[in-house]
């Protein structure tokens, strides 16, 4: 097949424009994933760990007993730890469980500081990670104001008891965190934690769609976000 230089340049230009247009349209019309946590519903099951187990099993998250070397994608904290300074001593929220995960911030500090773009913001709002590019400098962990990132201080493999062959296992020396189950979203399934919750306390949805159940829930119920004053724009909301 022969192609003239002019035709080649024209095609290249068109392809480039097409890619830019697709990106622009995608940014406007595409989904923006977010989550709401219904604290009252979560509270009815004080000892429930179903979402944590489902997530950690789906993603080969190691169960490391030493708290100092723990890896976690989703976990539970007392409300006053997750919202320091926002829960006074008379609040009914004291001691309420707060399910914590990566906030998939609109302006993620971790993405800003990463020296290799091993973590980046996708058009659909997910803060994604490339575990093969991460150099393990842990700058993102210093930057994250939510403590949502974990480092593999050792080889995680011995601590993964039921390995899921569908999902990659990490190596020692890289950082990891919740990915909003991007691998499940791509085949039309909701995140593992959302699916596992018996109380339907975790609501996942599209912030860009004003008619989505998530948007309606946020319009109807009072909610808070962790440290909004920092301007990171967390996309995980807590219905109180």
């Amino acid at each position: 097949m022969t192609i003239s230089r002019q035709a080649f340049l024209r095609l290249t230009g068109l392809a480039y424009l097409g890619a830019v247009a697709r990106k622009a349209i995608g940014a406007i019309t595409g989904p923006r994933w977010a989550m709401a946590v219904d604290v009252a519903k979560c509270r009815t099951q004080q000892n429930c760990t179903k979402c944590i187990v489902a997530c950690h099993e789906a993603h080969n998250v190691p169960s490391i007993p030493d708290r100092r070397h723990e890896v976690r994608w989703v976990w539970r904290e007392p409300f006053e730890h997750a919202f320091p300074g926002q829960v006074d001593e008379y609040s009914s929220l004291r001691g309420a469980p707060a399910m914590l995960l990566c906030n998939h911030c609109e302006n993620p500090p971790c993405v800003q500081v990463c020296p290799t773009q091993a973590t980046w913001k996708r058009e659909d709002g997910i803060v994604a990670m490339d575990w093969h590019r991460c150099i393990g400098c842990r700058y993102c962990m210093a930057a994250c104001p939510y403590g949502s990132r974990s480092f593999n201080w050792m080889d995680p493999q011995p601590y993964v008891h039921n390995p899921n062959p569908e999902f990659p296992m990490r190596t020692k020396g890289v950082v990891e965190k919740c990915t909003f189950c991007s691998e499940r979203l791509s085949v039309g399934r909701p995140p593992a934690c959302v699916e596992a919750c018996p109380e339907k306390a975790l609501v996942f949805g599209n912030l860009a769609d004003p008619h989505s159940p998530l948007r309606q829930l946020l319009a109807a119920r009072q909610h808070v976000r962790r440290r909004p004053e920092l301007g990171t724009g967390p996309d995980v909301f807590y219905l109180t």
């Binding site: 020296p115 290799t116 091993a118 590019r133 991460c134 150099i135 400098c137 842990r138 020692k172 950082v175």
Partner: peptide
């Protein structure tokens, strides 16, 4: 660095 072999990624 956790992954010094990847230092050139910078």
């Amino acid at each position: 660095m956790g992954q010094p072999a990847r230092v050139l990624n910078v």
